[in-house]
Write a protein that binds this DNA or RNA. Structure first.
Lengths: 171, 171
DNA sequence: CGATAATAGTTTCATCTGAAACCATCTGCA
DNA sequence: TGCAGATGGTTTCAGATGAAACTATTATCG
């Protein structure tokens, strides 16, 4: 309580303050969290699926059957998440698994007709949430946001190891 | 982008596909997650603190001693998270707790000198991460991003219950 | 006053999560 | 061949998480 009472900085965030709610990583976390929660609840309530499961369905629906590894590469999930999501989808009969006879470590995951039905129901709902989020944004603003997020995504890679020189397993 | 000028053009995402990696909620989640992980690792490695703990320190450092509830309101964390973060910070002697004699349910949390030292070390590091993230962005682009994120944050509120009419506890 | 409700904060419990260990299979190559 | 890695995927384990229950204290009001 002694040093903190001596403000030697003119503006709040000038010298040593940070102002948490203007700090980009914090803002991204809060925003993404709010959005994810709303969407997770929606999917859970109406379809009994979680976000990882939805992501798997989205990938399969988007470009057909795929292996666990392909799903992982395209969903930003780790292999454990993918494995568990597939297990739950299998239990719910929304996907099927077929071991690749040429390489029996692999298995191809494909949507079942029930899974495809869920997918077709979820897509418009997902789109509508996205639309709610972007309500009021002009086409130009959407393009801008798109571009800025892409660039942030690229920059985020630089955060991982700005000092250390790449290496080790991704998993 | 010229194909998009055809209203019924059979583009990949036209009829029923979704293309996960263009889906805004997904993009936000992946971006925030990448950023959070990098930052969490950094804080953990160098200071042995987690992101919730860092948030508490950031709030205290930003505007002085505060109660659990105040911290909660300003950190987008729930009261359980705040309670646990404070417990860990207490154990690490980075903050102190003093029960308010006027209302003994409340306790004021304040940074200890050690906490303030950590705070002063973390702030520039946090800022540098933010700078890495925004590297290459012009001042104009930063303002734009700022504004777009604020608006998305507002819109995200609309996602919570677009159909149901508000009610129930926040906690 | 005294009962009931509200508030601050903590604990419990059941679930979720991810890193590391693990199992099965395949590949490279001696 | 056969055996030391790689690879695909699952399981384990220890810790994180959050909703709901709980404790302690203060506020409200009949």
């Amino acid at each position: 309580m002694d040093a903190a009472t001596r403000p030697d900085a003119p503006s709040p965030e000038a010298a040593d303050g940070l102002v948490l709610d203007r700090f980009l990583p914090y803002r991204l976390a809060v925003l993404a969290n709010t959005v994810s929660r709303a969407i997770a609840r929606l999917y859970a309530d109406r379809f009994g699926i979680t976000i990882p499961e939805w992501r798997v369905l989205a990938i399969l629906g988007d470009s057909g059957p795929a292996t666990s590894t392909e799903i992982r590469d395209r969903s930003a999930m780790d292999k454990v998440q993918v494995s568990r999501a597939i297990q739950r989808l299998l239990a719910a009969r929304l996907v099927s698994r077929r071991t690749d006879p040429a390489d029996r470590r692999r298995a191809t995951i494909a949507m079942s007709p029930e899974g495809a039905a869920v997918y077709r129901e979820v897509v418009p709902l997902a789109r509508s949430r996205e639309a709610i989020l972007l309500d009021g944004f002009t086409a130009e603003e959407r393009r801008l946001l798109d571009r800025l997020l892409d660039r942030l995504g690229e920059r985020a890679g630089a955060l991982a190891g700005p000092d250390d020189g790449r290496g080790g397993d991704v998993d």
